[in-house]
Design a protein around this nucleic acid. Sequence first.
DNA 1: CAAAAAAAGTAAATCGATTTATTCTGGAGA
DNA 2: TCTCCAGAATAAATCGATTTACTTTTTTTG
Lengths: 349, 349
Amino acid sequence: MTEKAKNRPSIHDVAKHAAVSAATVSKVLRGVTTVKAANSSKVHLAVKELDYRMDPFASDLRRETRRIISVVVPELESEFFGRLTSRLELLAEEAGYSLVIASSHESEDRERQLVERMHDWRVAGTILAPVRSERGTGGTVMKNRKMTGVLVDRVVANSSFDTVTADNAHASAEVARTLIEAGHRHVLLLGLSEVSKNVRTRISAFKQEAESICGEVTIDVLLAEDPSTDSRTALAQYLDRNYPSVVYSLFQKGTLTALSEFRRRGIRCPQDISLVGFDDAEWMQATYPSVTSVVQPIKQIAEHAFSRLLSRINGDSGYAVCRLEPCLLQQRESLINVEPVSLHQVRIK
Amino acid sequence: MTEKAKNRPSIHDVAKHAAVSAATVSKVLRGVTTVKAANSSKVHLAVKELDYRMDPFASDLRRETRRIISVVVPELESEFFGRLTSRLELLAEEAGYSLVIASSHESEDRERQLVERMHDWRVAGTILAPVRSERGTGGTVMKNRKMTGVLVDRVVANSSFDTVTADNAHASAEVARTLIEAGHRHVLLLGLSEVSKNVRTRISAFKQEAESICGEVTIDVLLAEDPSTDSRTALAQYLDRNYPSVVYSLFQKGTLTALSEFRRRGIRCPQDISLVGFDDAEWMQATYPSVTSVVQPIKQIAEHAFSRLLSRINGDSGYAVCRLEPCLLQQRESLINVEPVSLHQVRIK
DNA sequence: CAAAAAAAGTAAATCGATTTATTCTGGAGA
DNA sequence: TCTCCAGAATAAATCGATTTACTTTTTTTG
């Protein structure tokens, strides 16, 4: 008898050990009931004795279904996507799937490659948070390959997928209302010039709401090319010659930039300039001043996106729906009321 | 001829289309050279025309190797693990693997399950960042199952794996030296009481260095059970009756807590109390004051861990090595020099 | 030009599971 | 006792690739 150096027991080893066929073992393991109790327990015993664990990929191969869901996000370093993926992971597992997380590192090219890889992997579904650039290469691949998926956070034009996003427009309008009611008449919007639908929405909704409430409000918009370095110099140059009463940063890093630029120039916040940021972070409650900011409903986005995906996986072929989850404006210290200086706009208490 | 609703072309479809055998197609696709140019181009053409992409799992099944590396981290929400996994992802892909990221959500039980799942997946290797509790359930599973892997960030006792960690001891000793040279004689160490090797190391290294330099230094240690809620109340109670000249927080959330508790009580930092934190974050440069902190060498940890893993995957069976990557003490505003007031701890304004 | 050697190609086995189609049991009913 | 049938069990086919072992073709060489 030649000794064979077996790596790991397969279903056939279990079958041999339990003196039944592989088919029977398979049935027992999948809980099919047409197996005699005696055989069933023989199998269970053999599984225990051999410490057998089935190979999920071999199983999936035969079943022509992969119990994997993938999520492609632009970055893993930020709190937002960290929480989002973390939540999705739990949801996927509750539903019997494994979640595979990949980061496109804000690169269109990588995004396309990753989506294609997930297609190669034959995943059951894909949740895609597109990169900032709006061209939506990943979404296009998903569409062409007829993959089943859902888009989150950044909506890409003309995609035929369900989308789930924070309600940027409503939140931004609420910020506008809040600022104007607090007496602010000169606002700087600090954003990113890279074509980001989200930022554009935040700007336009703010403008529209502000102007519909109050005619006498000045809204400056500053768009930086690069999130980290560029917005700082742009802001610095702007503040050299402009005196807004409040800065509304449209992305998290901008809030950080504003805060530190205020400090660098000795601008007291909120006494000299108020600050509101889109996208909350844990540290914003500990800064001086703590930062008033728009909290995105990450949990709701994750849950809704996942439930849409599940229903698509299970065959729902209805029209693509576009869901907006409401945000919360978290009031903190960085925003204060100011005396409205304009003659025309006397505020009423 | 019955029309068959084929989902996706397989290697056999390609073979048929190119009028060669599947074995030849396989050879062409894997770049084996013993194929005539004519056949090779026929195959390439067929691949293009059918838009064929091979199934990596079917391939891996036959080859008895999975080109997957997994990493299990305690959380994805933090900057530290976000950056770590992000970096590992790129490294894995450079080496021809896909990285599968999973979060144990700081749960021992989940950690064990995840490691076991990765074992079921037959991944080529696993990088594990254990949960805070030191029992090392995941590491034990890895050992028992003879998985190939590397441990990072938190070293678990008696494991037989390579480990890569920030050099907590050296960094903490440097903090001690810096504080004492800056005249501080009364330090509060703010940590977590959960058995975390890292925190314990930071404490003991600090104490040892401090006491070896200066006999007259008072070191208080405050350990909270739960990172978020508990450390705040503990700190508050402590500050009710103690007047350290500096707080050295041993974990990131503690730094945040200290900062906001200072503000709540009107303690001016750094004039009244200085602050140093272990584990840097982006926001720490924008707070007021900006926070002096220990920057962990995430990139180096990732790179070293990955290179160790690769060499283990490739058969290196040498003794387990334990690597410590040096940290950087980033000086900012929250730490200032004080007059050493030796006489029984009189606080000076 | 024929035989030997080298190169190229392929049918079939294989990886580890599931599913199909078939065979084997053990009773119930005639 | 024999037939028939439902219930269990299994051999073999299958998923989509790779590898082995063998056959065919081409080239080299005597």
